[in-house]
Computed example of a mutant assay.
Amino acid sequence: MKIALAGGTGFVGSYLTEALKQKGHEIFILTRNTQNKTAADQVKYVQWLNDGDAPEKELEGIDAFINLAGESINSGRWSEGRKKRIIKSRTQSAQEVNRILHNLKESPNDVIQASAIGYYGTSDTKFFTEEVTAAGSDFLAETVYKWEQTAHEGKLPNCRLVFTRFGIILSKNGGALPKMVLPYQFFAGGKLGKGIQWMSWIHIEDVVKAILYCLENKKIDGPVNFTAPNPVQMNEFGKTLGAVLHKPHWLPLPGFAMKMMLGEMSMLMLEGQHVTPKKLLSAGYSFSYPHLKDALEDIY
C-alpha cells in the first residue's frame, strides 16, 4: 500500500514508520521541513503546512492517510498561549488533511486520525467505552472534541474514518512514562494525589499493532479506544512500577504540590478515566500486553 503519514517523525510515528516498512508499505511522511531528511527505500518525505506547499501533488494514488500530527500536551505548562497552540496544531493539521483529500483526483479509502481518551473527561467512578458519545468539559475534552469535529467535517463519501483515541502510551523512549519513572530512580516514588484516579494505559507495541489492525480491518470505523483492557488506579500503577524497577513506593506527592509545579497540566496525573477498548476487542484484536506488570517488565 501507499500510505501518507503525517507526524511520522514524532513519538508514535517513528515506531509506526518502522512497522509499515517491515510490512512492505510505501510511506510518504509529511513534515514541515524536508531538509536533512534523506529519502530511503519505501520512505519519501513530503513538505506540508508551509505557505505554498502543495503535498497533494506528490500523494496521488495513496491508499490510506494516517494523521498523527499535533503538539505534545506533556512537554510544558499549559499557559493560555500554549493551550491555543495545542488546539491549533491539531485542528490545523486535520484541516490540511481535509484539503489534501479534497484535492486528490482519487481519494484514499481509509483515513486514520489520531485522537485521545481525553474526549471523555475525567471521573473516578464512571467507565467509558466508545458507546459514550458526550464529550467532557475540561481543556483536554474540548481539545479532542474540536480535533475530531474538524476531521469529521472533511469526511469524503465512501471514505472510512477512524479516530484512534490514545490512552497513556507506555514506552521508554517517549511519552509520559520516563517522567513518571524519574522519582523512583531517586528512591522518591510514591502515590500521586489521591491515588484512586484511573490510568488507562497502553504499551507502544500495541499502539502500533492496533493501528495496523485498524488499517487492515475495514469494518472498524469511528472512534476506537487505544487502551489496554485492564486500566489501573494510579496508586496501583506506582506500586507496580516500583516493583518492576526494584525501587520503593513510599513517598506520596500531594495534589496541591503537583498543581504548584505543573499548573493545570497536573490534571494529566491527578485526574483520570477508566477507559476500555470495546471496539478492538469486539473486532478480535489480541493485545500483546493486556496487563500492566507484563508491559512494564518488557519496557524495563
Rank of each mutant, 00 (worst) to 15 (best):
A4Y: 06
Y300Q: 03
E106A: 02
K83T: 11
E131F: 11
N98I: 02
F237Y: 14
G175F: 02
G195A: 03
K146G: 00
G24Q: 10
M267K: 12
H274C: 10
L262D: 11
I87D: 09
S89I: 09
S288L: 05
L268V: 14
L270S: 07
I86S: 09
L161D: 03
L182D: 00
A4T: 12
V224Q: 05
L182C: 03
P277A: 12
S89R: 10
R90P: 05
G222S: 02
T227V: 14
Q273Y: 13
L192I: 08
L30D: 08
G52L: 11
Q197A: 01
T9S: 07
F139A: 03
D110N: 09
Q95W: 02
E148A: 03
L68N: 08
A134K: 14
S137I: 12
L292V: 04
T133D: 14
V208N: 01
K23T: 06
N230L: 12
I62H: 09
K2R: 09
W78I: 02
F186Y: 14
G76F: 08
M199A: 00
I3S: 03
K146P: 04
V224D: 01
F65Q: 05
R77N: 00
L292C: 13
D294K: 06
L192T: 08
L192F: 02
K146T: 00
W201V: 01
I211M: 14
G190Y: 01
M269G: 11
F166M: 08
T133A: 09
Y213F: 15
L296H: 01
V12M: 13
E216K: 10
M258E: 03
G242N: 12
V232W: 12
N235C: 04
D51T: 13
A283H: 08
E297Y: 07
D124C: 03
F28V: 09
S14L: 07
H291M: 11
H25P: 06
V132M: 13
T17I: 12
K37C: 06
G189F: 03
L16F: 04
Q47S: 09
A69C: 15
T34R: 11
K278Q: 10
I168H: 11
R77T: 00
R165T: 09
